[in-house]
Amino acid sequence: MTTALRRPEAPAGSDRGTYTYISVYSAVLYTVLLTAPVVAGKLAEQFALTPVQVGALFSAELGAFSLATIPAYLWLRRLNLRTATYLFTAVVVLGNLISGFLDDFGWLVAARVVTSLAAGSITVILLTLSGRTSNPSRAFGLFVVFQLAMGALILAVFPALYAGTGVAAIYWTLAGLAAVCVVVVPRIDGEALREPAASLATSGARPPLAQYITGLAAVLLFYVALSGVWSFMAQISADAGIGLSATSLVLSVATVAGIASALLATILGDTPRRRMYLRLGYIGMALSVALLFGTPGLLRFAVAAVVFKFAWTLILPYLLSTLSDVGGIQVMNTTNLMIGTGFAVGPIVSGTLAETMGFGAMLAFSLVAVMASLLCVLVVQRKTTP
């Protein structure tokens, strides 16, 4: 059995500051994606955009968010993390401020790409520092919990709060939220990744290639499956004859279940039962997809949606923690690219399958992706020490 490179133990006193940094920034940075349902309508109205143009704008933002991984290969181990965070936060603030003043769609796309590239660069720091705490599962749990909580707040408050305003007001609010984040930057160790050469020989060395690829494949397949199914939950419900109001209520309850499971993973953190929780989460996710086959009634759809959301938000912290066990500073950086790629590929493939072969084929594809991700996780876990 191959033993994975062990991550260095973080000083106990530094974890609380890192957790604070992760919580605040993950909530605010992902707001740019979570506000998409609110921003889309205002953009279409203000710029007279077609649905294709609106979709292209959000795809460009998400793509830039993920592609921030590539330049991070060059700067992640060279820059002071505090300095890098201040720099990228300034770009996020300025990008959002400028976005509010633009009246040309082409320039708006450019501004949103630059803003998302900076936000994605901070996300790389978040993921990397999460994997280097003494309790990565807890750190990744916080990463998920605060995104979901902010998402629920946004969808509840933003539509009413900005009903009579233009899109500029939303972008300027995002700029203000990002500016507030800088107060937590001093809580992290800026030199955490700039280790001495002797230390890098062990903690920063490259993990075994096969294990590295298998771990990244697990994340990619997981996100392909979850984004492919969750993106079409409303359509699956409508196809089964379930009303829009009932569907909205079910998805709201599922969102609460997702926050609860991510919070549970955060509280439990790294435990001897981590592997068991991860596997149970995958089983729950697979069963929930299976429940959607055919034409589910309201009760079956509700159970499937709630279990699906509960399962994937329980899986995610433990899945990312498993990746951090693989070793190497750049593992979590590359994971950010896999997340973005999965988010992009899942809806496209699922939508194509649903349109050409029906929802049954789409769900079968997602079910295979879930089980393939689980298989990859089992392979990685066999090669890492508990």
Results as ranks from 00 to 15, higher is better:
Arg275Ser: 06
Leu299Cys: 03
Val256Arg: 12
Asp270Pro: 11
Thr341His: 03
Leu264Asn: 13
Ser261Arg: 04
Ile283Arg: 00
Phe301Gln: 00
Ile283Val: 14
Ala262Tyr: 09
Leu337Asn: 06
Leu323Phe: 06
Thr271Met: 10
Ser321Lys: 01
Gly327His: 13
Asp270Val: 12
Lys309Arg: 07
Phe310Gly: 06
Arg279Ser: 05
Phe293Leu: 14
Tyr282Glu: 00
Tyr282Gln: 01
Asn336Pro: 08
Leu319Gln: 10
Leu280Arg: 02
Thr322Leu: 14
Leu314Lys: 03
Gly281Ile: 02
Arg274Asp: 11
Phe343Lys: 10
Arg275Phe: 02
Gly294Cys: 06
Thr295Cys: 09
Leu278Ser: 01
Asp325Ser: 11
Leu316Gly: 00
Val303Glu: 00
Arg275Pro: 00
Lys309Cys: 09
Thr322Gly: 05
Thr335Met: 12
Gly258Ile: 13
Ala305Leu: 04
Ser321Leu: 02
Thr295Phe: 11
Leu298Gly: 02
Tyr277Val: 07
Pro317Ile: 05
Ala344Asp: 11
Trp312Gly: 04
Ala254Tyr: 10
Met276Tyr: 06
Ile315Tyr: 02
Gly284Arg: 04
Ser324Met: 09
Leu263Ile: 06
Leu292Asn: 03
Ile259Thr: 08
Gly284His: 08
Val289Ala: 12
Ala302Lys: 02
Arg273Gly: 08
Asp325Trp: 02
Val303Arg: 00
Thr271Arg: 15
Gly342Asn: 11
Thr322Met: 12
Val345Lys: 01
Ile267Leu: 14
Leu314Asp: 01
Ala265Gln: 06
Pro296Gly: 08
Leu320Asn: 12
Arg279Pro: 00
Arg274Gln: 13
Met285Phe: 12
Leu264Trp: 15
Leu287Ala: 13
Thr341Trp: 08
Ile283Trp: 08
Gly269Pro: 00
Val331Gly: 01
Pro272Met: 11
Leu320Cys: 07
Gln330Tyr: 09
Arg275Tyr: 06
Val345Ile: 15
Phe308Thr: 02
Gly269Ser: 03
Leu323Gln: 09
Gly340Leu: 07
Gly258Tyr: 10
Ala304Ser: 15
Ser288Asp: 02
Met338Pro: 10
Gly327Leu: 13
Ala305Asn: 05
Gly281Thr: 04
Gly328Thr: 03
Thr271Phe: 13
Asp325Gln: 09
Thr341Lys: 04
Ser261Met: 15
Ile267Ser: 07
Pro272Gln: 10
Arg300Met: 12
Ser288Cys: 05
Trp312Lys: 00
Ala305Cys: 09
Leu264His: 14
Ala265Pro: 06
Leu320Gln: 07
Thr335Phe: 04
Ala344Thr: 14
Thr341Leu: 15
Gly328Tyr: 04
Thr335Asn: 14
Val331Glu: 03
Pro317Met: 02
Leu287Val: 09
Asp270Tyr: 11
Val256Ile: 15
Asp325Ala: 12
Asp325Glu: 11
Gly294Asp: 09
Ala257Val: 15
Pro296Val: 08
Met332Gln: 09
Ile315Asp: 01
Pro317Gln: 05
Arg300Glu: 12
Met338Ser: 11
Gly342Thr: 13
Val256Leu: 15
Val307Trp: 05
Ile339Glu: 00
Ile267Gly: 05
Leu278Val: 05
Tyr318Glu: 08
Phe343Asn: 15
Ile329Lys: 07
Trp312Ser: 05
Leu299Trp: 11
Arg273Asp: 11
Met285Glu: 09
Ile315Val: 13
Leu263Gln: 04
Tyr318Thr: 07
Leu292Phe: 06
Ile315Trp: 00
Leu316Ser: 11
Val326Asn: 01
Val326Lys: 01
